[in-house]
């Protein structure tokens, strides 16, 4: 895979954000603000770290990415299209009857590794994949993106214990810590802090990063890979709705709402200008 510099990655992130907004506006429904918060996490993974081959999506030795927060599939779909798993035109068929792009991440989409959407299941699925790699003596790695609201689910902590118990070090979780969930600020709905200490006490290596800073994310992915004997998590501090001021300001309302077509031009323009 050709390594891109940070300016190039930023350009890709811009394109992905624009695609996400166009897809959601066209679909008329979907999860906007949580999709925008995890763009750099997914872009840096696919353009810097993840060993994969769009021409051979089922390559047995590929790294796996499990989108546990399955509702924020639009940036994943956009990245998969950019990588060439399917055509760009497919993106505008998001959530349509018969589309390969379901409303939540699904195995039907080329390049998508698991069906998710009922929260809290992806980390367990990732553990199963990582343990299979160990049994088969393969050295691929597994990446799993969690939402901050999602980790209210008890199953996440069951899986966190499993990963450290079995010393699953070919696993890296990423937490899109955008601080807001459907009912409001995470700290008001159900406080997660002290979050770093929680994961550490569960036996994980914890890396904190600015989730919109490519340098920090790439360093974090490298650090995670270097850690042996325990799983790693990147707590990525992000902004819900990142890139579009009217969505950032109203991120909770835009959790499960698509931008209106009338607002689309304004949003696209801002992304282009803000960079």
């Amino acid at each position: 895979m050709k390594q891109l510099n940070i300016e190039e990655l930023k350009e890709i992130a811009k394109e992905i954000r624009k695609d996400v907004l166009k897809m959601l506006a066209e679909a008329g429904s979907g999860h906007t603000s949580g999709s925008l918060s995890c763009v750099e996490i997914i872009v840096s993974l696919y353009y810097y770290k993840l060993q994969h081959d769009p021409k051979n999506p089922k390559w047995p030795d590929r790294d796996r990415f499990i989108l546990s927060k399955g509702h924020t599939c639009p940036p994943l779909y956009a990245v998969l299209a950019h990588r060439g798993f399917f055509t760009h035109e497919e993106l505008l068929r998001l959530r349509r009857l018969g589309s390969i792009l379901q409303g939540h991440a699904s195995l039907f989409t080329p390049g998508c590794e698991a069906s998710t959407g009922s929260l809290g299941q992806g980390l367990s699925i990732s553990n199963g994949i990582a343990l299979s790699a160990r049994l088969d003596e393969k050295d691929f790695r597994v990446y799993c993106l969690l939402g901050d609201g999602e980790i209210d689910e008890g199953q996440v902590w069951e899986a966190a214990m499993t990963a450290s118990h079995y010393k699953i070090d070919n696993l890296c979780a990423m937490l899109d810590y955008n601080k807001q969930q459907i009912d409001g600020w995470v700290c008001d709905v159900k406080n997660l802090e002290p979050l770093k200490a929680k994961w550490e006490s569960f036996g994980w290596h914890v890396i904190e990063a600015d989730g919109h800073d490519f340098k920090q994310l790439m360093d974090a992915y490298d650090e995670a890979e270097s850690i042996k004997g325990k799983p790693s998590i990147i707590i990525a501090h992000t902004i819900k709705g990142k890139g579009v001021s009217f969505i950032e300001k109203d991120a909770v309302s835009y959790h499960g709402t698509a931008p209106k077509k009338a607002d689309l031009e304004k949003a696209l323009k801002e992304i282009e200008e803000r960079g």
Partner: peptide
């Protein structure tokens, strides 16, 4: 593989194994 008293984790992990051909 033992999961302790964690059935939900066990079944999703089983799915992960099956995704890899187990």
């Amino acid at each position: 593989f033992d999961f302790g008293v964690a059935e939900q984790d066990m079944f999703s992990t089983a799915a992960g194994f099956a995704l890899c051909g187990k």
